[in-house]
Design a protein around this nucleic acid. Structure first.
Lengths: 114, 114
DNA sequence: GACATAGTTAACTTGAGCGTTAAATATTTC
DNA sequence: GAAATATTTAACGCTCAAGTTAACTATGTC
């Protein structure tokens, strides 16, 4: 299974996307997340494990109160997903035209990457 | 259920992502897809129904041989997904890179699209 | 018209994912 | 050290999605 597989499996669940939306702005404690999404801590914990295993979030387990676990987003999986999306879109005619024009322009300007 | 939900549900299955990857470059017949992904036509047909229902592909049922059904990608769901991705990334304030790419994409996207 | 071909739909089975409650772990507080 | 707090793990049940085979529809070919 590729990283992208994991990313999309992780994002396919609405609760986990809710977590992502909450973590977008700032890290949060596990308890905050289960409360915000109206779900038992146990269930949330398992969603967090999924997100952690697929690398979408990481856990911070230090700090003043070591019972608390804080979660924050990792950016790599999202970047990779966006790359895949761009790859899909690049083959659409309209985008392809734009790409061609862009390539043509850069080539004529002598800025081409080898 | 939002459109984005449907899109991500559709993309969460590896077989369906395989279909997307195959359709990226050009439309294909249902039979091609089931053969390429080593799966019974029946099973593929149901995956195609999911992709169709969530608007990720559309079916072409005309042509010289009307038994054949050709599938091709629709771009709208992917655009919406990319929008969501950009929203997630925009909050990584320290990652100016993401900002730049977002701005660049927006500029390009607005360009040949009336 | 009879048979083959392309694809979908139906019925059935199996397996995985999600939520719940209860128990376990770790840590803080008194 | 005992009770409370934050979170995870375990065990259980339920639902639903995915694959299979078989039957059905529609179209093409002889």
């Amino acid at each position: 299974m590729t990283d992208l597989d994991g990313t999309l499996i992780a994002l396919s669940d609405p609760t986990r996307r809710g977590v992502i939306d909450l973590l977008r702005r700032k890290p949060r404690r596990a308890g905050e997340l289960s409360a915000a999404l109206e779900m038992s801590p146990a269930a949330m914990s398992r969603h967090l494990r999924v997100l952690r295993n697929y690398g979408l979030v990481e856990e911070d387990h230090a700090g003043p109160d070591a019972r608390v676990r804080t979660y924050r987003l990792r950016q790599e999986p999202f970047r990779e997903l966006r790359k895949w999306l761009d790859d899909v879109e690049v083959f659409w005619a309209r985008e392809l035209d734009a790409f061609r024009r862009h390539a043509e322009r850069t080539r004529r300007a002598g800025k081409g990457r080898s």
